[in-house]
Design a protein around this nucleic acid. Structure first.
Lengths: 243, 243
DNA sequence: CAGGCAGGTGTACGCCGTACACCTCATGGA
DNA sequence: TCCATGAGGTGTACGGCGTACACCTGCCTG
């Protein structure tokens, strides 16, 4: 009975609801405009109410990351290490792509939450299961770095602009002039940027297939790692004898 | 004469001086505490005075990045592409290590400044000079990503904590308990983290040699790239026949 | 000597995170 | 049945942020 009444009123807040609302809000408006005040408003509550459920904004962000990580598929069983890793990374990538903000937030965490550690632990476990030494695994984890989460540090990718303001359309003749100028100053950049995007003449190579680029780089890395593993390479030994 | 008087008074502000002061301040206190107000104070000037020299804080940060990029060595002439790239990256790394904050700032730039484009252009030029096709260069640049700037996205590295607050020493017995707990929950992480740091028992593997890890990963990448180049591999062709 | 303009100032606004004291109301023991 | 308790929501306030806008000042040029 009292439950019913409570349900008719505003549902009671709890940590999970706060985090879910935060994730949803960030998905919608981006991480920049996500403030405690804005989130509170979304939950129809006064800002300070949130602090009964999260210690502060940092902890809120930690919690949001945990929610996101929870969406990554568990490792598929019974495959070789390489495909396990590959699939897991690509799963993480899909998740992080649903929550664009998560990349930046992940990067700014100062200490890992249990969920993060759990993911890393199971990630490392895939290499162990594949017969990697602790030592090689260590170096390999460094080499993979943030690619483990399914993203690369794409400096200045075109999608980064889409936070908030629209890029303010410019007249075609101005575009052309800019292109000319760029071609003169940065001929190599222009060549590379336009190589994969013959269809549209956009200056930043927005025509290029991010997913392909990601997999290309990932496979380059995995192939290199496989080669090391096959020849029982020990990075630490190599370093010692190099001196 | 008037010059002398001016020199006796506070030197006049200009964009370069603002940027240099900003870089110095960020070097000293970190990027977090760097506010327009704080910077103005450092320059013994009212906050709004800065806006006569930079449009807003974003532009200030852009300018700071440019200053940093200016410190990267130019490419060494007359070497093969691989060592040119390698040396350039390691030079960038040294610079970015002098300005720890620059990594984060670089990551948050939304559009590249001329200095950034210039660096990328000359970077791309090294591959062209090495006989790489435009196409392969494009993919290779993606694969290198932020490693071009001499950093990897080290999530949760121990250095990240050092912004501002000291980590508040904990009693050894508490440390031991934490270690026990971690070992139970994240056995793989613990193994890997402690593999390269037998000397000190710190939980986060702070004993590991970042520079070695970086070069290890860089070389893994460069070797992979070299292999592709030698066999005249065309990623785009590979993709077309696959797709 | 006059005028203009580059550059430094003062004030004020709206945002942010959050400390702290307070209120309210469901709940469980007497 | 009642009342103490404590979890959870509220209101107010503070200090910090970026920066808009009007203003002042003093050097440089004509």
């Amino acid at each position: 009975m009292t439950q019913q009444i409570a349900a008719e009123r505003r549902a009671r807040l709890n940590r999970a609801r706060v985090l879910r609302a935060a994730v949803a809000l960030a998905d919608e408006v981006g991480i920049g405009p996500l403030s405690m005040r804005r989130l509170a408003q979304e939950l129809d509550v006064v800002p300070m109410a949130l602090y009964k459920h999260v210690a502060n904004k940092e902890e809120l962000l930690d919690g949001m990351v945990d929610v996101v990580i929870g969406e990554i598929d568990p490792p598929v069983a019974g495959a070789d290490w390489k495909s396990m890793v590959r699939l897991r990374v690509l799963s993480a990538r899909r998740v992080l792509q649903r929550h664009q903000w998560a990349r930046r937030v992940l990067e700014t965490r100062t200490n890992p939450t249990p969920a993060v550690l759990g993911y890393m632990d199971s990630f490392i476990g895939m290499f162990f299961a594949g017969g990697f030494s602790v030592d090689l695994t260590h170096h390999v984890m460094h080499a993979i770095g943030s690619r483990m989460w399914g993203f690369t540090q794409e400096l200045f990718d075109s999608t980064a602009i889409s936070e908030g303001d629209t890029p303010a359309a410019v007249a075609p003749e101005v575009q052309a002039a800019m292109f000319q100028e760029m071609s003169a100053s940065y001929p190599n950049v222009i060549q590379v940027a336009t190589s994969a995007s013959h269809d549209d003449g956009s200056v930043v190579g927005s025509g290029c297939d991010d997913q392909f680029e990601f997999e290309f780089a990932l496979d380059l890395l995995l192939d290199g790692i496989e080669r090391l593993h096959q020849r029982d390479y020990s990075p630490t030994a190599a370093r010692l004898e190099r001196g």
